[in-house]
Amino acid sequence: MNWLASIGALTIAKMGSFGRATLMLLGAIIAKPQFIKNTPLTIMQIYVVGVQSLLIIVVSGLFIGMVMALQGYTILVSYGAEGSLGPMVALSLLRELGPVVTALLFAGRAGSALTAEIGLMKTTEQLSSLEMMAVDPLRRIIAPRFWAGMISMPMLTLIFSAVGILGGHVVGVDWLGVDSGSYWSIMQATVDWDKDVMNGVIKSAVFGFVIVWIATYKGYDSIPTSEGISKATTQTVVYSSLAVLGLDFVLTALMFGIE
């Protein structure tokens, strides 16, 4: 019966952890807003988690768009449908690749940095000293990072998709000779603002929420040793990536699966 007890203990531990994560989140975001104090902190964090992630997002978006165009062209051209390259690249990026790849890159680039930063603040007693100075670390440290992640993720996703579409144009139109007019006009006629663009944005907002929640909680709850922070950082990337992929299926089923 030991295995049964182990499963029970693991379940209790995981539920406890989930409960603590929820309490942390509620403590950080449910409070009287302090716009004057918190806006500069949030803008600063948008720079750290958003702007500083731009390079990896732009480069990845460009190459993924280029590869999509190359792969798509070789298939479409055999049916004489290479004119549909534009919508193929755009829809793939806006609906799926944009939100998912951006989220995976965001988890690796910004999520891990958030966990390590908050974990080190805990190790060096900076969080404790905030508490002793009667400043709530949830509102001073966690909340600005949380909102910054939530704001940055949809923006990064849109930038990723836009750059990817341009990358597709470079390969499809400039290199392989697809007509530029049909690349843009068929894309314009096919892509739906609500169904494609906004659903992608909603997906990215959900992914952003999950990633920053996991990242900030793992840092806040980390064991304050070098090993503890290393483990927490790894867990952030692994759990965020799995959560993003799992949620992507659920969201796709909800948005596109039921007609």
Binding site: E125, Q126, E131, M133, A134
Partner: peptide, 29 residues
Amino acid sequence: FEVRRQMSMLFQSGALFTDMSVFDNIAFP
């Protein structure tokens, strides 16, 4: 939190905020 404004603690590591200068650390509270 109100009561903590009347007390203060000097941590073993100092626990200064590493992203702020000495001046800003002291101005923080």
